[in-house]
Design a protein around this nucleic acid. Structure first.
Lengths: 232, 232
DNA sequence: AGCGTCTCTTGACAATTATCAAGTGCTCGA
DNA sequence: TCGAGCACTTGATAATTGTCAAGAGACGCT
């Protein structure tokens, strides 16, 4: 791991406040690896051997049941994924695969649990992280249960617009195929949903989205901080 | 609070391992109240003033958006609810209402955070609790996205059967109206879904469910520990 | 007991969403 | 440069789910 990567990891909320000594111990036991695209890093149902930190690239979390698959989240640098399984010493509930060439740190779960037990600041950070993850999934459940697919798409676009800086034209930054799965619909229906937002001044060309009338789409989408604000 | 109630609270995983002194401090600042049915205890969007512990009765967690409402969970004694908002000092993401006459302990959120900061065992217990909550919601999301409503109902019945002791006849223990909302469908469709499970040997009379052919319904439901086992 | 209210159910119908099939356009590698 | 493969789109159709309306039955209240 390079010095700057080392610093990137240290600056994550999860590790920022912990004792230097403990952080070093964690790092000593860690592996860094480069993965090509489309590699399955972890498989749901397997015991959680590592806490993963993504340094570059992107990773998709997905789940399967009865030959169906659904996209649960996309993880982007720099952040960790699947903390809950690690601290609970339980099996993974989601699988993960790289979407592109990705550089990933592997922290042995046992080390994480050991240091969690002795480092108060680290334990606190884990609580914050877990609470954050939990609240994010609750929001996502509300999104799924309370909104139609058209409303979900509209709100997704507004969130993505914000993430991209707020300009009226921005990039989707996701394959439509995967976006559809994430939003809980088929690719065919995403295509139709995109057309369905045209009357509200939204146009999509490839991966370029343009919001022609911000007020109009917001009036339709009715975004709520209790669903769409991932920061709280 | 009676002595036995005091003990009930203490025996919760969340409080079992913490310092007696800290537990007493928490209890000193607490209120116990009896609520009639259908009282809204907390409202989503409001700041989290209290961590709630339900001693008797039952409480529904629900969310609303755009005049729609959905049931998120039912909380039964003895357990806590909405830990995440308390430790994050954030607004509630769900509302809560009593379903019946309920006795509930209110622990001021500030006290909980203060003691969380000084009591290592309590902090650990909170981590476990949050990880558990998080994983449960992930399972619920998988249930929603990967299964049809008929499959969700079938798996719900199998879970409920297990909870009720495993006998082939058991009680639904939930209003159908609320069960429908929990499962993400309308009451009308729940009625039809129940009929739709008859070919698999499931019969429902009022709130009495009978599984006539366990293997048959399980073959249809395909329950998975990665979705349906709430204990891990 | 009688009344109103509420849940649950059922039927008819509408809306939404999924599936299947086909076609377009793009990328990438031989 | 060509061709295969893939993502995306579109149309036709089917399946699922929701909505509306009506009625049966249970329950509590007066």
């Amino acid at each position: 791991m390079s010095k700057s990567e080392h610093r990137d990891v240290r600056e994550l909320d999860l590790f920022a406040e912990m004792e230097e000594e403990n952080f070093q111990a964690l790092m000593r036991g860690s592996y860094v690896q480069n993965f090509p695209p489309q590699i399955e890093l972890i498989t749901e149902g397997e015991p959680s051997d590592f806490l993963h930190v993504i340094l570059t690239g992107s990773v998709e979390l997905f789940s399967t049941w009865n030959r169906r698959e659904t996209s649960m989240a996309t993880v982007r640098p720099v952040s960790t994924f699947i903390v809950a399984a690690t601290v609970k010493d339980a099996v993974y509930l989601m699988s993960a695969r790289t979407l592109e060439k990705s550089r990933i740190v592997l922290l042995p779960s046992q080390d994480v649990r050991d240091i969690f037990a002795v480092d108060q600041q680290f334990a606190r950070a884990i609580v914050t992280e877990l609470a954050q993850c939990y609240r994010t999934v609750i929001k996502s459940t509300k999104d799924l249960k309370l909104r139609t697919s058209l409303e979900r798409l509209a709100n997704y676009l507004l969130r993505q617009q914000k993430r991209a800086g707020g300009a009226s034209t921005f990039d989707l930054s996701t394959e439509k195929r995967r976006l559809a799965s994430f939003l809980g619909m088929t690719p065919e229906n995403l295509s139709r949903a995109i057309k369905g937002l045209q009357p509200y001044g939204v146009s999509v060309d490839g991966s370029r989205v343009t919001i022609n009338d911000q007020a109009d789409i917001e009036r339709f989408a009715k975004p709520s901080p209790l669903i769409d604000d991932y920061s709280t």
